[in-house]
Design a binder for these strands. Structure first.
Lengths: 157, 157
DNA sequence: TGTTAATAAATTGTATACAATCTAATTGAC
DNA sequence: GTCAATTAGATTGTATACAATTTATTAACA
């Protein structure tokens, strides 16, 4: 199709990644709709359910998101009564995020989400084969992300 | 860390995919900066360099993007003189996208991009091992995206 | 043929992403 | 102790994504 194989869209890892990520986010939407969350909001809750009262930067480090993304996202969650944003009394620069009862309550509903999604993605988690396939792909992607993040660091300008 | 392994962020394929995709887009930015393109804009050019004069919907099908994303993106490219948007004379509903000379000229610079990025991503394309690793991951992601897209179709609502 | 259904883009509204800048608070060097 | 660097978030501005609606055009068919 393309005269230059190097520029052939279908051959590129990059596009496959871009496409898969968006397909995944779209697949999440109906599963998260009962929780009233978007996918990035769900990721924030995954972190908060694991550890309450984190700083905005803690969340940012975990999720690779900066305050430009997190601040408005967290404000929306606060406005809906799912979290509270409180200044740290010891260091007034820091804002800590606390779950409200409503935010904690979402966790019960959320437990169904990962399994449902694995099903949509075609991984049979009841069999070792499915678990390993998922884990293998996940580890490859994590390694790729790490390499790419370090590559950006290495050449700062 | 998390009490519920199922909800542990680090274990999830979904987050690995989300993170890798954004790391990739950020890694592209400095490579595309000489072309003055964002990553989605670059994808549009990949398609246009392969085949000029495509309809907006053709691009949308290839890239899994709808007119809500493409229309403003294409208008920005038109405004910068890189493409032309022309109504199809046979069917006035259709808008076709044509490269300008400036848009075609970008292709020369673009040829360096995929190889440079493969390097940043840690794939050595000079060795079969690197090529196979890239192709394998790409194919897994494409298959995953296809499954997820069909899964969404299957449950309309 | 006249009207309805379908189609292609555009538009609207909401929610990310992210670079760059700004502000307030804290550290550190001296 | 004071003032320059640093740090944490917030803000600003641009560019996606995408659902939902709208508009214009074409196709279909009773």
């Amino acid at each position: 199709m393309a005269a230059e194989p190097v520029l052939d869209l279908d051959r590129q890892l990059c596009f496959a990644l871009y496409r898969a990520q968006r397909a995944l986010t779209r697949a999440y939407a109906p599963l998260l709709e009962p929780l009233g969350l978007t996918y990035p909001q769900y990721l924030v809750f995954l972190r908060l359910w694991a550890e309450d009262g984190q700083r905005v930067n803690d969340l940012g480090d975990c999720l690779s998101l900066d305050s430009g993304t997190l601040t408005p996202l967290l404000k929306r969650l606060e406005h809906r009564g799912l979290v509270e944003r409180r200044r740290d009394t010891a260091d007034e620069r820091v804002v800590r995020i606390y779950l409200t009862d409503a935010g904690r309550a979402l966790r019960t509903k959320a437990k169904k989400v990962p399994v449902a999604l694995a099903g949509l993605a075609g991984f049979d988690l009841d069999k070792p084969k499915g678990v390993n396939a998922l884990a293998g792909l996940r580890d490859e992607l994590t390694a790729l992300a790490t390499r790419l993040e370090h590559a950006s660091d290495a050449k700062p300008r």
